[in-house]
Simulated scan of single mutants.
Amino acid sequence: MADTAVLVIDMLNAYRHPDAEQLMNSVADIVEPLADLIHRGRDRGDVDVVYVNDNYGDFTGDWDDIVCTALDGARPDLVKPILPTADCLRLTKVRHSAFYATQLDYLLQQLKPARLLITGQVTEQCVLYTALDAYVRHYDVVVPPDAVAHIDAGLGEAALEMMRRNMRAELIPAAHCLPA
């Protein structure tokens, strides 16, 4: 069983929504450190990588549909580096928190990580709410600021500070989240 789980939240995005331009700019800044963190996590035996992605209201689609839609979207270059491999754990969600109405809580009970690295988008929305739900479930929360993307920079910074202060989240650069 892994001591750490990396949650990759909502990174499979077609970027066809009103605030997509601001989000794409932020994602462009985080995709490299996030991809490196995901790859390092996959290569280790003591880390579980779990993708949790919005289904964008398509209840007829499956995980492959989410991937195809993202790759056919406005910025496939932001999606390709972080694509899940066939052996990655994958869940869909419909609301902000990765825990809300998903199987994540049950999955983590089976995996038994002590620490959750929460990555992805959007810092001031889905990342924040997932961190809160992880904290109330007594997980050690780590958020790498260079592996989460925001829509509004000020709100993103405020969300990181809330996670640090109110949820005891460690804010650690992605390169230092998985020590050798």
Results as ranks from 00 to 15, higher is better:
residue 69 T to F: 05
residue 81 P to F: 07
residue 142 V to H: 02
residue 116 L to S: 03
residue 53 N to P: 08
residue 86 A to N: 08
residue 104 L to E: 08
residue 59 F to M: 12
residue 131 A to N: 02
residue 128 L to N: 02
residue 115 R to P: 02
residue 66 I to S: 00
residue 78 L to W: 06
residue 35 A to Y: 11
residue 108 L to P: 05
residue 90 R to S: 07
residue 73 G to H: 06
residue 118 I to V: 15
residue 144 P to V: 06
residue 31 V to F: 01
residue 81 P to S: 09
residue 138 H to S: 15
residue 13 N to A: 00
residue 108 L to M: 10
residue 34 L to N: 09
residue 139 Y to M: 02
residue 95 R to N: 11
residue 145 P to M: 01
residue 53 N to W: 03
residue 120 G to N: 11
residue 131 A to D: 01
residue 50 V to M: 01
residue 105 D to R: 10
residue 125 Q to H: 15
residue 32 E to C: 01
residue 69 T to S: 14
residue 16 R to S: 13
residue 21 E to K: 09
residue 25 N to C: 07
residue 56 Y to H: 12
residue 102 T to L: 05
residue 70 A to Q: 04
residue 127 V to K: 01
residue 121 Q to A: 15
residue 80 K to T: 15
residue 99 F to M: 03
residue 81 P to C: 08
residue 143 V to W: 00
residue 117 L to A: 04
residue 67 V to L: 05
residue 72 D to N: 15
residue 20 A to H: 10
residue 88 C to W: 03
residue 86 A to W: 02
residue 112 K to Q: 15
residue 34 L to W: 07
residue 103 Q to R: 12
residue 64 D to R: 06
residue 120 G to K: 05
residue 35 A to W: 10
residue 60 T to K: 13
residue 74 A to I: 03
residue 45 G to Y: 01
residue 36 D to N: 13
residue 79 V to L: 04
residue 123 T to M: 06
residue 70 A to F: 06
residue 57 G to W: 08
residue 92 T to D: 06
residue 139 Y to C: 05
residue 32 E to H: 06
residue 85 T to P: 01
residue 72 D to Q: 14
residue 113 P to E: 03
residue 18 P to V: 09
residue 140 D to E: 14
residue 121 Q to K: 10
residue 142 V to R: 00
residue 93 K to V: 12
residue 82 I to S: 07
residue 136 V to L: 08
residue 35 A to P: 09
residue 22 Q to A: 15
residue 128 L to W: 02
residue 129 Y to D: 10
residue 11 M to C: 11
residue 126 C to Q: 09
residue 115 R to E: 13
residue 33 P to Q: 05
residue 137 R to D: 10
residue 55 N to T: 13
residue 57 G to A: 09
residue 65 D to V: 13
residue 56 Y to A: 12
residue 86 A to Y: 04
residue 76 P to Q: 09
residue 82 I to F: 05
residue 145 P to G: 01
residue 96 H to F: 12
residue 27 V to G: 00
residue 9 I to Y: 04
residue 37 L to D: 06
residue 16 R to E: 15
residue 103 Q to Y: 08
residue 110 Q to Y: 10
residue 128 L to Y: 04
residue 51 Y to G: 02
residue 102 T to R: 00
residue 78 L to K: 06
residue 42 R to H: 11
residue 17 H to M: 13
residue 94 V to C: 10
residue 27 V to C: 04
residue 99 F to Q: 03
residue 116 L to F: 06
residue 65 D to E: 13
residue 89 L to W: 10
residue 36 D to A: 14
residue 106 Y to D: 14
residue 40 R to L: 07
residue 25 N to Q: 15
residue 143 V to F: 01
residue 145 P to D: 00
residue 49 V to E: 03
residue 16 R to G: 08
residue 13 N to V: 00
residue 42 R to D: 12
residue 108 L to I: 09
residue 124 E to A: 04
residue 100 Y to V: 11
residue 54 D to V: 02
residue 57 G to N: 12
